[in-house]
């Protein structure tokens, strides 16, 4: 007789995570059965072997991993759970792969709230469903109080790459157009304002979202994409500097066309942070031959839900100043957009 498990599941009888939940015994099994299996439910996971056995269509496989540490674990617009799924889905998608299967590894601090864990796992399940991927294997470790900040999640993912693509950060050609699929800096500022308890008139929400649907639509319409990246940590500045360096070309951006929402810009200016250095979790930068840029823009606007309304052609690839990204200001002057240094430290005044 099999027990039909479904999400939401009955809560575990424990209110908080204990060391024994990661020790591999009865309590580990209880945690898996009460929280993880009902939410992630799929035939590959439900076998409960030490590994998931999967078959893939022939062709090239993309494989990626990312670890998610975010404080607070819940923030406006999302939580560490959907972030962990979307992050890995997006890393696969920007390589031209169709994301298929994910693993999920949890490091949880002793004393973490069980209802919060369930909320996070549900949010992972919802994100996986939205992105059309399955979480097929996982692991949980519990560490003593103080050894981790609430919870860390690692996700790895595999996907199958479409044929006939040549997408790489080294593929930029002078004359190409640079596009972004929506407004910049939303995720980083949502987390920062939530972490610091800063309140503004409007709440800044994270843009965490899966990009595979949008990217698939772009590649259906315009297979000749030269480069694609989701500008997460380091923001647009990091992604474009990496592109310019890898391809040995220059990039010129039009400051007026850079989409930054007024509330995000306001928060950035208050804190002395450049929105171009701030993380995004549901945006893609696309570099295509100029003659296809309008088509790509149209596809983004049709396929990226509400976010797509801010999509824009923001600049072009040039022969000049190889390895460097330059911004043209509305006044007609120019400045260099540097690779960000590291941690974003707010300015004094």
């Amino acid at each position: 007789m099999s027990i039909e498990l479904h999400c939401p599941a009955p809560l575990s009888r424990h209110e908080t995570i204990q060391m024994a939940h990661g020790a591999g015994g009865m309590m580990s099994r209880e945690l898996t059965r009460s929280i993880f299996l009902p939410c992630f439910k799929n035939s590959l996971l439900d076998v409960m072997d030490d590994q998931a056995k999967i078959s893939l269509d022939s062709g090239k496989v993309a494989f990626t991993t990312d670890t998610f540490v975010v404080t607070p674990v819940f923030f406006p617009g999302g939580d560490i759970g959907d972030l962990a799924v979307n992050g890995t889905v997006n890393d696969l998608a920007v390589g031209g792969a169709t994301p298929l299967y994910l693993s999920a590894g949890f490091v949880i601090e002793e004393g973490f709230s069980m209802p919060d864990l369930q909320r996070i796992v549900k949010s992972m399940a919802a994100a996986a469903e939205k992105a059309g991927v399955k979480i097929v294997t996982g692991d949980t470790k519990v560490v003593e109080k103080g050894q981790c900040d609430g919870m860390f999640i690692n996700t790895s993912g595999i996907g199958v790459i479409r044929e006939g693509l040549d997408i790489s950060c080294a593929n930029l050609k002078p004359g190409d157009s640079v596009l972004v699929s929506g407004s910049l800096g939303d995720h980083g500022m949502a987390v920062m304002t939530a972490r610091e308890g800063l309140s503004f008139q409007s709440v800044i929400t994270s843009d965490t979202a899966p990009l595979n649907g949008l990217i698939s639509a772009i590649l259906d319409g315009v297979p000749h994409v030269h480069a694609m990246r989701d500008p997460t940590r380091g923001g647009l500045a990091a992604s474009l500097n990496e592109f310019a360096e890898a391809s040995g070309v220059g990039i010129v951006l039009n400051e007026e066309t850079l989409p930054v929402k007024p509330d995000v810009l306001g928060a950035c200016e208050l804190l002395g942070i450049d929105p171009l250095n701030v993380a995004n979790e549901g945006k893609v930068v696309v570099v295509v031959p100029e003659e296809m840029s309008k088509d790509v823009l149209e596809i983004i606007r049709e396929n990226a839900d509400v976010a797509g309304q801010h999509a824009a052609i923001i600049g072009k690839v040039v022969d000049d100043h190889p390895g460097m990204v330059v911004i043209k200001t509305p006044l007609g002057s120019r400045r260099i957009l540097e690779m960000p240094l590291g941690e974003q430290l707010p300015r004094i005044c």
Binding site: T329, L331, S333, R335
Partner: peptide, 9 residues
Amino acid sequence: IIRNGIDQL
């Protein structure tokens, strides 16, 4: 001044 390139203008 530097961000807006005013010195260049």
